[in-house]
Design a protein around this nucleic acid. Structure first.
Lengths: 147, 147
DNA sequence: TTAATTGCAAACACTTTGCACGCTA
DNA sequence: TAGCGTGCAAAGTGTTTGCAATTAA
């Protein structure tokens, strides 16, 4: 999401009321680095002293996902859902199996492949998600990285 | 999993007891077509008249995953975990957004890409998962496929 | 016989929902 | 002031766990 996102305008344009909770939740994603869970957002707002309820966070994230401002996804082995600014419509992440850090990956090697697959299977391909798993430099250091 | 998998031998070799529940659960994956949930396995056994509890299904699937006989994974937008025979160590699926059917994909276009990414990020890459989304021929037919 | 395995019910983690009150527009 | 949005608590999923009874070895 871009740096100076006009939250109020966005909400009104979409037919929603502008509230401090929504402002704060949306603000969380400005200059955002990596995907977060509802709980992450909730904790961040608590830390900032913004009064908000976890249900409201869930409701707002869901609404933003419907409006295609965010994308919502899970990663294998984790029951939680993650949210990230929806830039591209598809997603690629590099997931550290040590510290569970999730990093977006830029380059997409799959455009060609999708075309071939569509022809081969007669499916209409509308997108994909790719997670690559491994250990980040920090976690490689530990003998047995597991948190 | 291969057609005539010797379930009893496998269990004993791994230090487990041979029970009719485990036999039946493992049998579910013989000549298996597509990934299933614990609930799917449970329902199938009920249908066959095999007395089994859902906890037992979960416990057995977990055990098989530990033994690398199965792989366990989730797909974006679905809170459930899926299980499939673990042939390759990584997985590629083609997910129909209409009927939720999941099909394995054979060819893996990512070996090269992983190498480049490892160099670029200094991560140790240990695997990946790739889901491609779209609509299967059946679901393309429907105007608004959504079940 | 006895330790592993099962069924059952309760606990869990994450997420969603119903409802009354409060606050934008 | 009308109705959307919020907080709260309760309900829902999918999954895990403790424990006593059962069963394979």
């Amino acid at each position: 999401m871009k740096e100076h996102f006009d939250c109020e305008a966005f909400l009104k344009k979409s037919g929603f009321k502008y509230t401090k909770q929504r402002e704060a939740i949306l603000h969380t994603f400005e200059d955002s680095k990596r995907p977060v869970t509802a709980e992450d957002v909730y904790m961040e707002l608590k830390k900032q002293g913004v009064p908000v309820n976890l249900s409201t966070v869930y409701r707002t994230l869901e609404m933003m996902t419907d409006k295609n401002l965010l994308q919502k996804f899970g990663i294998p082995g984790d029951a939680r859902m993650f949210f990230a600014p929806n830039c591209t419509g598809h997603r690629h992440y590099l997931v550290c199996m040590g510290c569970k850090k999730i990093l977006p990956i830029e380059h997409c090697p799959l455009a060609e492949y999708e075309k071939a697959l569509a022809k081969e299977t007669s499916y209409t391909i509308s997108g994909h998600s790719l997670d690559i798993f491994g250990y980040c430099p920090d976690c490689q250091a530990c003998t047995h990285p597991d948190e």
